[in-house]
């Protein structure tokens, strides 16, 4: 318990939290270790945790019959995974599969949600952290959509580089 508090306190993501809020989170957290190729979560599985990667890296993938597996983004130490746990039906949209031996702090979704309801300041402070990651992920996705290094369909002319 004390050890988890230390880990959370020292994690860059949580540096804005008060000691009380860290304590609340630590009471709802555990450390998990994963081998290469392990699924942290699977698409359509129950979103009962969210995670902060502390070691290793995870590929965010989607798989469909006839389509195969597409990796959309690689997440690494420091990244926060998961927001399906916040909204019904609490089901994961994607797969998260480790690319190397990895470690994460896993937070219990149901009890964190429960705490949000009772303590809106705690909810606001934690949501700010989650929202930062959501923003980064959306910006990254938009840049991917732009296909910046691809050929512009109106392409003529020349490039300096």
């Amino acid at each position: 318990m004390k050890q988890l508090e230390n880990i959370i306190t020292n994690n860059e993501n949580f540096k804005t939290l008060s000691p009380e809020h860290v304590k609340e989170l630590a009471g709802r957290a555990s450390i998990i270790d994963l081998e290469t190729g392990a699924f942290m979560f699977c698409q359509d599985g129950k979103a009962d945790h969210f995670y902060v990667l502390t070691k290793g890296s995870v590929g965010l993938e989607i798989h469909a019959a006839g389509w195969g597996t597409v990796t959309m983004q690689t997440l690494r130490s420091g990244d926060l995974l998961g927001w399906s746990w916040m909204f019904p039906p609490y089901r994961w949209h994607f797969d998260a599969k480790t690319l190397e031996p990895s470690q994460a702090i896993a937070f219990d979704a149901a009890t964190v949600r429960d705490k949000f309801k009772k303590d809106s300041d705690f909810g606001y402070q934690v949501m700010k952290i989650v929202a930062t990651h959501m923003m980064d992920r959306i910006v990254a996705a938009r840049l991917q959509i732009l296909d910046l290094y691809g050929k512009n369909p109106d392409h003529q002319g020349y490039a300096i580089r």
Binding site: M72, R76, D79, A140
Partner: peptide, 22 residues
């Protein structure tokens, strides 16, 4: 990193800006 992964790529996927964070 690559914006779009293709078969056999085991490296990083995502835009280069997201690497800067860590």
């Amino acid at each position: 990193t690559v914006d779009r992964s293709t078969m056999g790529w085991r490296g990083n996927v995502g835009v280069v800006t997201s690497l800067l964070r860590n």
